[in-house]
Write a protein that binds this DNA or RNA. Structure first.
Lengths: 194, 194
DNA sequence: CTTGGTTCTGAACGCGCGTTCAGTTAAGCC
DNA sequence: GGCTTAACTGAACGCGCGTTCAGAACCAAG
């Protein structure tokens, strides 16, 4: 037996990435084998190498795509006030990360499994994202809309706080996503306020 | 050759745990082999089994000890006001976690590598710790010292924010640990305030 | 119906894994 | 000095790892 009827590169390629995404998120990069990924796709391990140079590239591509997606989706609204921009960022971060739990998990947990070169690229993308928030905070400080001592520290604090939502929030419980967005926005607004 | 002169259980035991701690924190549990740990200690892999039943127990013991240490060290000061208690918690969390970066990293990253039974035990300890903060917040809400809609969500938000310090703060830079404690305390105080 | 190119299989490569254990060495006690 | 016992070595066990590749199976075009 060889390839199954109807199986094509256009279909298998995305399936490889999806399977890798889910397995990496569930068990961790180091604990997942190429044979496990292949099994989830329904092919032999060797076939994966039609779609990725090696296991490392599979991880790197997933992380890079995710970070680029985040950067492309984060609202850029310079005409709004700093407070409005901050609210937009908070609501966006929570909603976007909620929609991509596996990608977010991998992007935060598997950094140390990247080669040095790949790590630097992902870190640069992450810094770009953080710079968006830091810019909002810095402008808000300059305009006296916000009152924090250090925009950089506030950036770290807010992002850590927001990303933490993914560790506990599950849809269908006591609170809706909108409820969570509201409450986090209230806390963030107060924390950087006067 | 067999054992080296002067080498004893009292010495090798802690050295095994220290080596495992550092290697797990640096490379991740799944990526570290018993032979690597043994090599760091200066013995053969088989000798490790005088000090741990298996690799899983090594991880579990490290995490359990850490969580118990945290619980034993967290201040319990019921005579203080909710605001004072919250300040104590914030400063404690930042300082304690700063002193144990490897343990903290492992405790947050390697949960999925625990067996189901072990995971439940660690989770219970973690819930106990979070309950300390949640209790402070709940009392502060009842006494109108704090104004947040939901003590549970505020607990998650504050802990995520504080734990995030470990991802970026390094001693010897622009800010001292006391500076960081001050700034985070200001943000936390405002975020739960009226 | 043949040909060409894409996709996949199945086997193989060397290697390191966690764990076990018989045997060896060293320390402490009489 | 002889004996007991703790501590450790070194080799072995079966197994799965990432990756490669020749050849088979399949599809589309002429």
């Amino acid at each position: 037996m060889a390839r199954t009827a109807g199986s094509h590169s256009d279909i298998t390629g995305p399936r490889v990435r999806t399977a890798a995404l889910q397995l990496f998120a569930e068990h961790g990069f180091a604990a997942v084998s190429m044979r496990q990924i292949a099994s989830a796709v329904g092919v032999q391990a060797g076939a994966l190498y039609n779609y990725t140079a090696d296991k490392q590239s599979l991880l790197f591509d997933l992380m890079k795509t995710h970070m680029q997606d985040v950067l492309a989706a984060v609202p850029d609204t310079p005409h709004l006030t700093p407070t409005q921009q901050l609210e937009g960022f908070v609501r966006f971060h929570i909603a976007f990360h909620h929609r991509r739990p596996e990608e977010v998990f991998i992007a935060y947990m598997e950094l140390r499994n990247l080669t040095a070169d790949n790590f630097e690229i992902i870190e640069e993308l992450r810094r770009s994202y953080e710079a968006r928030l830091q810019g909002i905070l810095a402008r808000g400080i300059a305009s006296d809309d916000f009152a924090v001592e250090d925009a950089k520290i506030a950036t770290f604090a807010v992002i850590a706080m927001l990303t933490g939502v993914n560790t506990w929030f599950k849809e269908g419980g006591r609170l809706s996503l909108a409820d969570v967005q509201d409450q986090y926005w209230h806390m963030v607004r107060k924390s950087v306020g006067a």
